[in-house]
Design a protein around this nucleic acid. Structure first.
Length: 649
RNA sequence: GCCUCAGUAGCUCAGCUUGGUAGAGCAUCUGAUUUGUAAUCAGACGGCCGGGAGUUCGAAUCUCCUCUGGGGCUCCA
């Protein structure tokens, strides 16, 4: 007999050789929704045999761990269906991911019809409720089992010494190399859907074999799957590409080229408002403005290291009669020259210069997406030249600046990422390991001291130094970098940056901080649009006020109100057409003005306005002068909420 | 750049499976209507069905190539 501890210190006695699943079923009943078990802290299959005293916990299908197992099992199920349908396909790897799973196969690409067919086959396997069984093998017999799949053999080769690849999981005729654990049988995998296919490369290396990747989503319950589908639909409504078209924020024309959006008048308003806000902020933080050219000579980018390290990201060279020119992918090299333009004193540090410029990056055509990834970037860029001692304060200021910005714009869902170089793959980086270590530790220390939570990411650094990136997830679920604060230890040598220190010595220890707290205007506006679903705070709104007349009798009054609002800089339009008022409201909702003013005889006589806020709230009989006053406060203070209306009652 | 799906009127889409004179709603314009909070009525205008080639007596529809867009890979702000 063995003692098994379950839940809150309950000890049960069982015969040795009982399975974890039987114990759990004995305690919780048959339908308690567990997919696997934790035995003495280690995740195990339900079939795991208990032969010593131990502690057993259930992993519920709806828990984080449970979903992970469910999705992993669902990936196996997909592989089974694929091998059944395409006997030559070689499964490679198939991990669980957020919301679902994917599996990469060495096989010819497939289309939608095959995807549907696979889904059918998977459902069939689910209905037959195959048992999913773990098998232990020694290394040699595992290799024999997978001898026709070089990818699995390669995985085993990699795991030599780790002593992990000793198990396989079998369901019917299908067997896959796997650590497990898995759900007990295929009937647990009912709530899945195959979503898409794409091409990936073995080991994410484009020189290796191209693989067909199949994505699916998978949940423990019907409701879970339904909720996810609903989320995707909701997100699609916020998509900046959809709203951008509806609100006429930007356009892309074939004749100009892909990745080269044109800012339409409404989008330009957003851009200008953001720019003005940044200008104000940067003045407070001690930045000075400069403007540098869009192109520069090859020698500059060789000096900066862009050509050796970033050539792929730049447009090809232009041969001129006096040399070779490149469009700039970044402002930094030119800003370094601004710094170097005269002898600097320690009294000038930190020296901060900002530029509202455009950079040009040769993104691969397949990567371009709406405003999120473009080839011409409007950047709110700046560089800070300072001593190592000053780096901490400057980085802290920038983190604060970012947080202030985000709070004004209403962003709450983001996380910090410390982006490090990859010592295993140094080609992309300036090879100075000791500098990498010291600057990375420096940034890490700053973040720790500020008590800002962050994740670390290897291989995400800039070629000249580590970064603090602020990561967002788009409405459609893709993670993107928004703001960035980068520490550059290489520029000082490459550009011979120096200053005269307190002792009158020429000191070459100039550190450069590259920062773009507002991302690029393109990406920022994309996020802003998705975040607010186009219902921007009043100060940003391209159409702040829409005036609607009830009949043609109020034409003059409407024009008078419009002029009063224009006088204080409000963006306002009048609709005095002969449509019905319901029709006018419906029409103008598309442009999402913060407030609509409904003007009839009553308002005309009393010099008042009837306010219909964007959220549907209604507020009548407000004296025009009061409205103007309140509105201007709302706009000037860059308030996020439409407080004007609720304030009245 | 690679894989996949899709391109029909300014916008949203039907027609394509099974080839036979290009459709709807909204928007626009013109009348009528003068309206109190999410679509007033009527009429008109609008398309070489992304572009090119092929198959066919005949192609929006079938085949191939190409361009553009969506999703993914890779890359990155």
């Amino acid at each position: 007999m063995i003692n098994v501890e379950i839940g809150d210190n309950q000890i049960h006695e069982y015969a040795s050789g009982i399975s974890a699943g039987e114990v759990l079923e004995n305690v919780y009943g048959k339908r308690y929704g567990a997919v696997a078990a934790v035995v003495n802290g280690i995740e195990r299959d339900m079939s795991f045999i208990l032969d010593l005293d131990c502690k057993v916990e259930a992993i519920l299908g709806e828990s984080h761990e449970g979903l992970y197992i469910l999705r992993h099992s669902c990936a196996h199920l997909l592989a089974q269906a694929v091998v059944e349908m395409f006997p030559d396909a070689k499964p490679t790897i198939g991990p669980p991911i957020d919301h679902g799973f994917y599996y990469d196969f060495f096989m010819d690409p497939i289309g939608d019809s095959e995807l549907k067919e696979l889904e059918k086959r998977m459902n069939k396997i689910i209905r037959t409720n195959l048992k999913i069984e773990r098998e232990e093998h020694d290394n040699q017999s595992l290799r024999d089992m997978f001898s026709d799949n070089k990818f699995k053999i390669e995985i085993m080769d990699d795991k030599i010494g780790e002593d992990l690849g000793s198990s396989a999981y079998r369901q019917g005729d299908f067997v896959d190399l796997c650590r497990g654990p898995h759900v007990p049988s295929t009937s647990h995998l009912r709530w899945f859907k195959l979503t898409s296919t794409s091409q990936a490369y073995w080991r994410a290396d484009r020189n290796r074999e191209p693989l067909t990747r199949i994505y699916g989503m998978c949940y423990a319950t019907k409701e879970g799957l339904k909720e996810r589908k609903r989320q995707i639909e909701e997100a699609a409504k916020r998509d900046h590409k959809k709203i951008g078209k509806e609100m006429e924020l930007y356009m892309i024309d074939e004749l100009i080229g892909k990745g080269l959006p044109v800012w339409l008048p409404n989008g330009q308003i957003l851009k200008s408002e953001i720019e003005n806000y940044a200008l104000e902020t940067e003045e407070n933080y001690g930045y000075q403005r400069v403007t540098t050219p869009a192109l520069a000579k090859q020698e500059l980018f060789e000096c900066s290291g862009h050509l050796p390290h970033y050539a792929d990201g730049m447009y090809p060279p232009m041969e001129m009669d006096d040399g070779t020119y490149y469009l700039k992918a970044m402002n930094c090299p030119m800003h370094h020259l601004v710094y170097r333009n005269k002898k600097r004193s320690y009294r000038e540090l930190p020296f901060r210069i900002a530029e509202y410029g455009t950079c040009y990056r040769n993104e691969m055509s397949g990567a371009l997406a709406g405003l999120l990834r473009v080839r011409m970037l409007s950047m709110n860029d700046a560089h800070i030249y300072c001593t190592l001692n000053q780096v901490g304060q400057e980085v802290a200021n920038n983190i604060k600046m970012v947080q202030d910005y985000y709070s004004t714009f209403g962003f709450e869902d983001y996380h910090f990422r410390l982006s490090l170089w990859d010592p295993e793959n140094t080609d992309k980086y300036i090879k100075q390991p000791e500098n990498w270590n010291s600057t990375q530790n420096h940034l890490r220390k700053i973040l720790d001291e500020l008590e800002v939570p962050y994740v670390e990411a290897i291989g995400e650094a800039a070629f000249y130094g580590p970064k603090i990136d602020i990561q967002f997830t788009t409405a459609l679920g893709r993670e993107e970098s928004m703001s960035t604060i980068q520490l550059d230890f290489a520029a000082k040598e490459r550009f011979e940056l120096s200053y005269k220190d307190e002792n009158g010595e020429e000191n070459g220890e100039v550190f450069v901080i590259h920062r773009a707290p507002l991302s690029t205007h393109e990406r920022f506006v994309a996020f802003l649009t998705e975040h607010w679903a186009g219902n921007f705070p009043t100060w940003l709104s391209p159409n702040q006020i829409q005036i609607i007349t009830i009949s043609e009798k109020q034409k003059d009054y409407a024009r008078k109100v419009r002029q009063s609002l224009k006088d204080i800089g409000v963006r306002v339009a009048v609709d005095d057409s002969d449509n019905t008022i319901g029709k006018k409201i419906r029409t103008h909702r598309k442009m999402r003005p913060a407030y609509m003013l409904i003007l009839g005889d009553e308002e005309n006589q009393k010099e008042t306005v009837a306010i219909r806020a964007r959220n549907g709230e209604q507020c009548n009989d407000i004296p025009l002068s009061q409205f103007i006053n309140d509105l201007s406060i709302e706009i000037r203070s860059r308030r996020k909420e439409l407080l004007l209306v609720t304030k009245q009652d």
